[in-house]
Each structure stands twice: as C-alpha cells, then as structure tokens.
C-alpha cells in the first residue's frame, strides 16, 4: 500500500526532519449517516511506528481524533543523507500501511 503514504525527509543540520501523510478516512464512529440515522462504524489508524535504518524511533498510538488523511512530522538526530526512514501503520480493521523514503 505504498501509494497510500507520502513521505519526505530532509536534513536540517544533524537532524532529519520527516513529514508523513497517510491517505485514510479516519472515521470516528460517532457520526450518524443522515439518511439511515445509523452510526457510521469507526475506521481509523490506531498504531504507527517509524524507523530509521530499521531501528524504531517513533512509536505512536492514535485515537479517532487524529484528522482525516493524517499528517505527522517528527525529527531524528544523528541521521545522515541516504538513511532509510520507514513507516508502518495499521488501522482498527487490521489494514496495514507501509511507506519508506531516503533522507535527502
């Protein structure tokens, strides 16, 4: 599902500045369908792990209040140009998302 994730990592001094965008509906489960009056089932990414060259640097748990098409940014000290940043995410229905980029 590489096409679901957009990533960019750039060096700022000795720190890699990483920005990630994941395409996801992030449905809260608290909204009602206006026609059926039924709650729309929750569907949201709840775990995200980012790694630098295979070593975990960021381990996140998310609730339903992360915005639709989630954006997040983080910084890693000691990274070098060409280093590999990977992001693994999973939603509450078990769908997995994966993205990777090289530090520029």
């Amino acid at each position: 599902m590489d096409n679901e994730m957009k990533m960019r990592a750039t060096m700022q001094g000795d720190v890699a500045d990483v920005k990630v965008l994941i395409k996801h509906i992030m449905e809260t489960g608290l909204r009602k369908d206006p026609t059926t009056k039924q709650f729309i089932p929750a569907h949201f990414i709840n775990q995200v792990v980012a790694s630098l060259n295979g070593v975990t640097v960021l381990d996140m748990q998310w609730g339903v209040a992360v915005s639709k098409n989630p954006f997040f940014g983080f910084k890693v000290k000691g990274a070098k140009p060409g280093d590999k940043i990977t992001v693994n995410a999973v939603d509450n229905l078990g769908t997995k998302f994966y993205g990777e980029t090289a530090v520029a």
Binding site: L52, L58, W62, F72, K75, A79
Partner: peptide, 24 residues
C-alpha cells in the same frame, strides 16, 4: 472531545521529543 485522548507518542533511538500533527 467525546474521547479526550488523541495520541500517545513514544520517542527512542535519537528521535527528538517533538511531534507535529493535525487533530480533530
């Protein structure tokens, strides 16, 4: 918010204690 916790973020191995995100 109906459920106040938005996100819990753990930093390790050189990640700076910084996070940027969009919340509802």
């Amino acid at each position: 918010n109906p459920n106040p916790l938005v996100a819990d973020i753990q930093f390790s191995n050189g990640a700076l204690p910084y996070i940027s995100m969009h919340i509802k």
